[in-house]
Design a protein around this nucleic acid. Structure first.
Lengths: 220, 220
DNA sequence: TTACCTAGTAAGTGATTACTCACTTATGTG
DNA sequence: CACATAAGTGAGTAATCACTTACTAGGTAA
């Protein structure tokens, strides 16, 4: 993460034993932040919703900002580094699957994860869009960690002749653009409570084949 | 728009002659809302930035919310209804182009428009994500107006054999997902000051052909 | 018991919030 | 000019904000 404060909050959020009231605080904060946004949620509201005095929140979390971070950070740290390892495992193994199969399992896996943590996902997206400081911390982190690994995987599949003959950067850019749009639209704009198999399959076909009719002779 | 308050604010924002101070207020509001978000910008800040007393803002706009709307509404009303008419014009004319050409001119045109209004675009996206009320007003409006027209166009091209043999709904869903991701990532996440021709061309190729290597015999 | 720690509380704190109001100044218009 | 209307002001306002502080209660260990 390359950020000491972030590290401290993250390890504390994961390791520290929480009291009942502390859990209630986090639960209420998640629900309220997801619904109304961080800036539009007051600490008084969180206190009331979790049946706790306002002082208790500050005893445990110090500031409202740190409360937000102890909600967000465990999620993002599980969202990304996981991907790195799993990606390599899934592609570089000997009994390699096709790129389409790889993409399918990746999407399904992450859809499941985000479905289980939809409220926190909503908070993360909202605040990355809204709070510049958070964007400036999280975006470079994501951009520095994900692309390199992803690129390797893409290059591997391209060498096997499965992918279009384009630089991995370009492939990645468009893939991330589409997947980003997919997750944000399904989990944030429309609060779809389950993304169907069919929809996932349609998305995969779109990524693989695009919109052009393969029978069409007017190629190029 | 189907909303009387919205209509009133929109027509007033467009038709009413503005004083110098009023223009300064709107300019400063746009800049501040885009940078820090609506919720994190106080009317006092706007007043100071535009060299005007706070009272003046409320004299003209009544509430902070109405000020936001008079910034946003002219933009969205120009972003969408335009598309409807132009879309039909561009596709249904006799000397019809290919779908790829249609897509190219659509993207280039809207990239230009958003580039010219990037700050307002940022405000709109931020507040749709953040303010539930706005999302609930604007999203149904967009969903009710755009898909029907778009669908017609897509069906036209599909009948010509240019597009994959899928229902227009499904094609549209993935296309909108990608284009949404494209605009948001380029104009909001990365504040790209000009989206290059090359990047647009890559996006078009992705939408048309997907990622699969056409020479690959492992089709299906 | 004594001493100490942690969890939790209730009542504050000053600063900031969106908004109001009584008022002055400018701009026409008959 | 006289008078009306609109534009603009700045000092308020109550409410709300994140955060603090002095405190109690209960468990633990020497």
């Amino acid at each position: 993460m390359s950020n000491k404060i972030f590290d401290a909050i993250l390890t504390q959020a994961i390791t520290k034993v929480k009291t009942e009231k502390q859990q209630k605080i986090v639960e209420s904060a998640i629900q309220l932040f997801a619904e109304k946004g961080y800036s539009n949620t007051s600490t008084a509201e969180i206190a009331k919703a979790s049946g706790v005095s306002e002082g208790t929140i500050f005893k445990h979390y110090g500031t409202k900002d740190k409360l937000l971070l102890s909600v967000i950070l465990p999620f993002v740290s599980e969202l990304f580094p996981y991907m790195a390892q799993e990606l390599i495992k899934k592609t570089m193994s000997e009994n390699t699957t096709t790129f389409e199969q790889f993409l399918r399992s990746l999407i399904k896996d992450r859809v499941e994860f985000v479905t289980e943590n939809r409220e926190i996902f909503q908070i993360v997206v909202k605040e990355i869009v809204y709070k510049d400081e958070l964007k400036k911390e999280l975006l470079p982190y994501a951009l520095a960690n994900i692309p390199p690994i992803f690129k390797k995987v893409l290059e591997e599949f391209r060498e096997r002749g499965e992918l279009v003959d384009l630089p991995a950067d370009k492939i990645l850019k468009n893939l991330v653009t589409f997947l980003g749009g997919f997750f944000v639209s399904r989990f944030l704009l429309i609060d779809d409570f389950n993304v169907s198999e069919e929809e996932i399959e349609d998305a995969i076909q779109f990524v693989m084949n695009g919109l052009r009719n393969p029978q069409n002779n007017a190629l190029e």
